[in-house]
């Protein structure tokens, strides 16, 4: 555990929208807990990247955030978890759904209607929202995700990237405060993935939605984030600002896919060349390199 990193992050309790302490969870029939003493604080408006090797408990943590754990999965949950000032274990999934939207990895298995707009309306229908309101909110969600033109198409006719945007619109229509996305791009090609990251970035910036993005492809995702959490074997091992986390030695040891820009920075540092800051994406790296290269030349 990098203690310095965790402490360097000043926690402002009043702004915290997600707060867990000492979270321990074991799946029914599981021998070992999938989450071990997870304590973290996420502030309102944060864009969090949650990463770590497969099977480290990322997905399990996501399920805790909207109440799938413990309500849908049962199993043994200890510790405290509060989301949007609701204690998860005391509120049903549908109450939490109004505050937390969960987008899954496989776009195909989370769309079940025969037209896009009907799918987007599904959650609102369940909540009993009056038709006029529903129409307006569905159209708004479709426009925010840039798929208004596809509203009458059948989901299975769309590309994976479009399907995933529909899935985002589906939870967006419920106007959540928090959006949790569990590896939403792992079936998409880079361009489709980039589009998804842009949409998510917009939701965070323009609407102030708190985003928690589970992702392996840090190269593409890191430029939007202001908070990175790394998990391993059910524990939170790193928690802090992107540049601190990516530059820490333990990130590399756990085998997180550190962005190449940061790797280049590290390689240069070993050889005695220091850039002014730690770059986490290629644009930053280019600028920082230009500074150093032209300065040394001058």
């Amino acid at each position: 555990m990098d203690d310095i990193l965790c402490e360097s992050r000043t926690v402002n309790k009043t702004l915290a929208i997600i707060n867990t302490s000492g979270l321990i969870y074991t799946y029914p029939g599981g021998r070992e807990p999938s989450l071990v003493d997870v304590s973290l604080t996420i502030e309102k408006g944060d864009y969090v990247i949650l990463t770590g090797p497969s099977g480290c408990g990322k997905t399990t943590l996501c399920r805790c955030l909207n109440g799938l754990i413990p309500h849908f999965y049962s199993g043994k949950l200890e510790g405290e978890i509060k989301v949007a000032s609701l204690t998860v274990s005391e509120h049903s999934i549908y109450e939490l759904a109004k505050h937390v939207g969960l987008v899954f990895q496989n776009p195909e298995n989370q769309l079940f209607a025969l037209s896009v707009e009907k799918d987007v309306a599904f959650g609102l229908e369940n909540l009993g929202v009056p038709r006029e309101d529903m129409r307006a909110r569905v159209d708004w969600a479709l426009q925010m995700t840039g798929i208004y033109d596809l509203r009458e198409r059948a989901p299975h006719e769309l590309s994976g990237g479009q399907q995933q945007r529909v899935a985002i619109a589906c939870v967006l229509a419920m106007k959540p405060d928090i959006m949790v996305l569990d590896e939403p791009t792992s079936f998409l090609d880079p361009l489709g993935a980039q589009k998804i990251f842009e949409v998510i970035g917009d939701l965070n910036k323009k609407l102030g939605i708190t985003v928690i993005l589970v992702e392996h492809r840090l190269d593409l995702a890191s430029k939007y984030a202001n908070h990175v959490i790394v998990m391993d074997e059910g524990k939170v091992v790193l928690d802090g600002k992107p540049l601190d986390v990516f530059d820490s030695e333990s990130a590399r040891l756990i085998g997180v896919g550190i962005p190449k820009a940061t790797r280049l920075y590290q390689a240069l540092r070993q050889s005695g060349v220091y850039l002014n800051r730690v770059p986490v994406n290629s644009q930053e790296a280019t600028l920082l390199l230009q500074e150093v290269l032209t300065r040394d030349r001058g």
Partner: peptide
């Protein structure tokens, strides 16, 4: 799971 997350059975 996806249905539950979208308020299935709320009312």
């Amino acid at each position: 799971e996806a249905m539950e997350s979208r308020a299935w059975g709320a009312t």
